[in-house]
């Protein structure tokens, strides 16, 4: 498998091999993210293919520092969009809907998050908040609200009881709210 830098070189040279190598290295990763959100193998596969296309269009000029996270973010965004389309009319019971209801406790942001610079500011603040946490805690938070894993999956992944995961997430959301208030973003 090629190093990320070599894959990026292929993108810069506009070699189609770039997509092949990206798929070889990151298909499983991207598919897992999309499948976690959509619970559909076919839809997840479509998302992953769209991810490659988006990456092809973005690189260059964009040169991601971490290719995996870059691809993961694209996949996540695409999968959420597909989910929104599917569930526009009805109340779903999927992980996104559940995650959204949980996030209600800390989503009353002061900033106008439509504005790109403000969004970035809030994202940076959340990153700072998470980096202050113990590894076990921030992992669970990211697995819930970035990877959108279910509480059950997270409990299994981290060998915890579901109640422990819920409790930990609850406290983290409360702490995040306080943190954002302190940062004058809430």
């Amino acid at each position: 498998m090629l190093y990320d830098s070599e894959i990026l070189d292929l993108y810069v040279k506009r070699s189609e091999q770039a997509v092949t190598e990206t798929a070889k290295k990151y298909e499983r990763y991207c598919h897992s993210i999309a499948y976690g959100i959509l619970s559909s193998y076919e839809e997840a596969e479509e998302c992953v293919n769209d991810t490659y296309l988006n990456a092809w269009n973005a690189i260059p000029p964009h040169m991601p520092e971490r290719l995996s996270a870059f691809l993961g973010k694209i996949t996540r965004n695409l999968a959420i969009k597909v989910y929104e389309k599917k569930h526009a009319a009805k109340r779903g019971k999927g992980q996104i809907q559940l995650a959204l209801s949980e996030l209600a406790e800390c989503s009353d942001l002061k900033s106008d998050v439509e504005d790109e610079s403000n969004r970035r500011l809030v994202a940076e603040a959340i990153s700072s908040f998470l980096k202050e946490q113990k590894e076990e805690k921030y992992k669970i938070f990211v697995q819930r609200y970035w990877y959108l894993l279910s509480i059950k999956q997270i409990a299994h992944e981290n060998e915890l009881k579901e109640s422990q995961v819920k409790s930990l997430l609850f406290n983290m959301r409360a702490d995040l709210k306080k943190f954002l208030e302190k940062e004058d973003l809430y």
């Binding site: 520092e65 971490r66 996270a69 870059f70 993961g72 973010k73 996540r76 965004n77 959420i80 996104i96 995650a99 959204l100 996030l103 800390c106 989503s107 942001l109 998050v113 439509e114 969004r119 970035r120 809030v122 994202a123 940076e124 959340i126 990153s127 998470l130 980096k131 921030y138 990211v142 609200y145 970035w146």
Partner: peptide, 14 residues
């Protein structure tokens, strides 16, 4: 929006 913003957190955390 919050979910979208969390999508932009630091790569390292992801």
């Amino acid at each position: 929006k919050m979910l979208d913003i969390i999508g932009d957190i630091d790569d390292e955390l992801i």
